[in-house]
Nucleic acid binder design. Sequence first.
DNA 1: CTCCTTTAGTTAGCATGATAACTATATATA
DNA 2: TATATATAGTTATCATGCTAACTAAAGGAG
Lengths: 138, 138
Amino acid sequence: MVNGYAERFEGMDPSKVLGALELMRSGSILIRKLDAYFATHDLSQLRFLTLVLIDREPERTALAANEIAEKLDVSRPVVTRTLQGLQQAGLIRISGNKDDARAKEVSLTPLGESKLGEVLPGYFGILHDAMPNSEARQ
Amino acid sequence: MVNGYAERFEGMDPSKVLGALELMRSGSILIRKLDAYFATHDLSQLRFLTLVLIDREPERTALAANEIAEKLDVSRPVVTRTLQGLQQAGLIRISGNKDDARAKEVSLTPLGESKLGEVLPGYFGILHDAMPNSEARQ
DNA sequence: CTCCTTTAGTTAGCATGATAACTATATATA
DNA sequence: TATATATAGTTATCATGCTAACTAAAGGAG
């Protein structure tokens, strides 16, 4: 398809365009695989990454919703909704911040921790398998 | 973040995992750029690709909704909705297929053709610029 | 020819992303 | 201190993907 158009656009390098299309394609395929995997664990990309983020927080056991939105680069309303879902599933605990009445503190429940431990190996496995061996040896 | 977990998973190659994460990240960024570009032209990825597909159809000037769903790998309900939007915008014409009363035929209007001509250069430009020069020279 | 299955498309409803506009609280300034 | 501005979070609404279940037409088997 690209070649059909390529003739009409001077200075265009079809290999670059095809590379970009391939980038989007392989990225999308990987995201689909992960979504399918997460779905089998009653999670989603964002739900999973939220758990990871709380788990990995150094020096603290809790995070503000605001920080989650920034670090995961999603809008705050999406974080609100996601946290509500995780709380309902019993995976996180949401409490008020005693220093700032506006803020909330989010931490993992034991169930959330075990869910994370259960899902992580498969997650890394999918990422691992998604890469060709040529890029594997450093 | 990955290294923190890497120690706990035997046989995992962190460079592969990081490569996969980078793949998803760069793919997502490119998709966002394209979406932002399409939005300035009252289009979306799917609306744009639908126009391209109809335009590129060899030997015919029309396509069935069904074929669009297959070639773009999206569900048929999404195609229905997208075609309705394109029709309302005056970019495509939808007519019945005289050989099969179930099927519909979709073709570009002159407005659709000019819209495509207006959007294509910027589209290829974004794809082109998204790729590093190292992959450019064949 | 009649009935069953397949196919094209639509409708309804869910998930998950976004922005705009709102409330409540914190902070800075006059 | 009083008021203005900034920040945390929520609500409402939209966009765009999906599946399930539906209608209507086509095609095949008896």
